[in-house]
């Protein structure tokens, strides 16, 4: 891990670290320029998402560094060129992340946070545009057992969202448990300070993390 200049990892590095724990991510490619982005999108299949990736970039959405629902090669190349042009010197070296565009009506958020009294915790919540208003969050201390993780899911108030929903199947509870147990494992790594999976899109009932941010414990 390269923590020399920043305590947060880039999206691509964050995902690489977390994939080793078993967190599911969409298929994606990290490429240096617009032409390579177009080729990557062809390989992944449309639609795709294009994002600017770099160690210093933590708030992509706020800065307009994410382009969603791109449906052909030309649109991907244009988006990639525009995003690369938006990079500032503070961003350090940047690349373009091309990923499958996932579809799902439901979003969850999950992560790892440090509590000053209780130490590493695992967090699960209802995501999406209403997440802050709902404030439907369940927290446990790492490490977790499978029944702790199931109880976290049971403790969410918005249970109707977890059943069959608008033509989509019920949320696969075991798949959510797998994500929570993976986060709990990551939480026990003394090098990892926090993790944000925001959002996890529920695709065919299974949660997939479309964005990830890992913050390292400062040396």
């Amino acid at each position: 891990m390269t923590a020399a200049t920043s305590s947060t990892l880039s999206e691509a590095e964050s995902k690489a670290v977390l994939a080793r724990y078993g967190i599911p991510f969409p298929r994606e490619d990290l490429v240096p320029d617009a032409v390579a982005a177009g080729a990557a999108a062809e390989r992944l299949g449309f639609p795709v998402v294009v994002k600017l990736n770099g160690d210093g970039i933590a708030h992509k959405t706020e800065r307009g560094l994410v382009r969603l629902r791109l449906t052909d090669r030309a649109a991907v190349e244009q988006a990639a060129s525009e995003l690369l042009a938006k990079a500032t010197p503070e961003d350090g070296p940047v690349e373009v992340l091309v990923a499958q565009m996932l579809q799902g009506n439901r979003e969850l958020i999950a992560g790892v946070a440090q509590d000053p009294q209780f130490g590493p915790t695992v967090v699960l919540g209802v995501g999406g545009v209403l997440a802050e208003a709902l404030a439907d969050v369940s927290i446990r201390l790492a490490p977790l057992t499978a029944s702790d993780a199931l109880e976290m899911l049971d403790d969410l108030r918005t249970q109707a969202l977890l059943g069959p929903f608008r033509g989509e199947p019920a949320v696969d509870r075991d798949a959510v448990v797998t994500v929570l147990l993976a986060l709990a494992d990551a939480a026990m790594d003394p090098e990892i300070r926090s993790v944000d999976l925001n959002p996890l899109i529920v695709v065919d009932g299974r949660p997939v993390a479309v964005d990830a941010l890992v913050e390292l414990a400062s040396a």
């Binding site: 509590d115 209780f118 927290i139 702790d148 976290m152 403790d155």
Partner: peptide
């Protein structure tokens, strides 16, 4: 007493 985040305390109790 040092106050803890109530949701963390709640989770710790459940667990």
């Amino acid at each position: 007493s040092l106050a803890s985040d109530d949701r963390v305390f709640d989770g710790a109790c459940r667990q």
